[in-house]
Design a protein around this nucleic acid. Structure first.
Lengths: 224, 224
DNA sequence: ACTTACCTTAATCCTGCCTTAACCCGGCAC
DNA sequence: GTGCCGGGTTAAGGCAGGATTAAGGTAAGT
């Protein structure tokens, strides 16, 4: 689950990113409205957290622009207590929800869940590749042998592979999205998890394999 | 069973919350219409008690807004004697029932039961899983050993588990629905209640077990 | 053949969950 | 009032299994 956070106040931004990552989201942080637009045009996100007061381009304008462009990504607006009137404006402009600062981490997470749940009825709650299905709701993976559970990190690695089947995903991308930028883990751990996953995929007779591409990354390939 | 109470008169609100909690509901209290909307947008309630006269946004407007958003949560409107005409307006706007102040606690409870029963989900108020039955009307749980009563929170936890048998329910979901967003209880309490429940389920020879799913939540599984 | 990138395994560290006991508080009996 | 009781919550200790490191091995490219 990939989120974009647009919040100019650095300390708050860092705190929110920490909360999100602790809860198995991966988040990109940007610090003004124009950056937010840039990122939203290129990357595909499952949700956006958008502060209203931002340099260069305010949150409402960002929201209007992306909605005008037909982008239906769920948006959670952040407003300071003083700008409560803005909430109406935000919702009218196509925000899915709003949250007034300060807020508790629990409320933030609950609203993100509600927002991403209600939206599009989680079309990609289930990923498929070969004879494998991965269920993001129950954290289960099913193969012809039956369904089984993976450790947290194993699951996330497989999720990334299955979300982009046949694409080569750079090793650093795994590090960034699963371990985070500020992790001091060695690149080695990715290799270790690929090893674990390969063993399990074989044990459960999956007809997909994890292929290493030298100097590039990994990809999931069928029938091998 | 989780309810939202929107009533600006503090003393009445406190009284109603006390009545509700005494009868095994858990309730969040809000004191104006905008707050009510905030809380309702999370979609985490089984019913709403909505006063008509409220600051910022009146009950009718709240009702119209949530119905316009497709929210079908059962709504019980509260009206003062003088505003009897409003009741028609309320029902037209999508309320399920209304109650004129003053009212007796028995009438309030009866109407809540009727409202939440008629609405969707479990038409009968008995849940079954394995050799367990849970009665939402009498708050009793029965096993081959006989029937027994659980503490309020224990009951609600078991109710959530039995309402979604075999589904993994995130720990935060328990927190949200039973303890509420603004509770400052630690996530720890959920673990404690799972422990209590497991002990009681074993004592009463239930053939269902509470299974923890690491990093995900809990689910009820049969045959153990 | 030699370097470098990747694989595998085992050992160690750490996190998430379980359990129990103690504490707090409101209600009730005396 | 005083003391008990029961539900709700916190805190601490423990444990299993997940996460990371480290070290030795294999294969791809030059």
């Amino acid at each position: 689950m990939r989120l974009l956070l647009a919040e100019d106040e650095r300390s708050l931004s860092k705190a929110i990113v920490a909360i999100l990552e602790k809860n198995n989201y991966s988040a990109d942080a940007v610090y003004d409205g124009e950056e937010a637009l840039d990122y939203l045009e290129t990357g595909n996100y499952d949700g956006v957290i958008l502060d209203i007061m931002m340099p260069k381009l305010d949150g409402i304008s960002v929201l209007k622009k992306i909605r005008a462009a037909g982008n239906l990504v769920p948006v959670l607006m952040l407003t300071a207590k003083a700008e409560v009137d803005d909430k109406v404006l935000g919702l009218d402009s196509g925000a899915n929800d709003y949250l007034t600062k300060p807020f508790s981490s629990r409320e933030l997470l609950a609203r993100i869940r509600a927002m991403t749940r209600s939206q599009a009825a989680q079309p990609d709650c289930v990923l498929r590749a070969g004879n494998l299905t991965l269920n993001r709701a129950t954290f289960e993976v099913a193969s012809p042998t039956g369904s089984f559970r993976l450790a947290n990190k194993e699951f996330q690695v497989l999720e990334m592979l299955m979300a982009n089947p046949a694409n080569v995903i750079p090793t650093e991308r795994f590090m960034e999205r699963i371990w985070g930028y500020d992790s001091d883990a060695e690149i080695n751990v990715v290799w270790v998890y690929m090893s674990y996953l390969r063993k399990k995929l074989a044990a459960f007779h999956a007809n997909v394999k994890i292929k290493a591409v030298r100097n590039a990354g990994y990809s999931l390939v069928e029938e091998g």
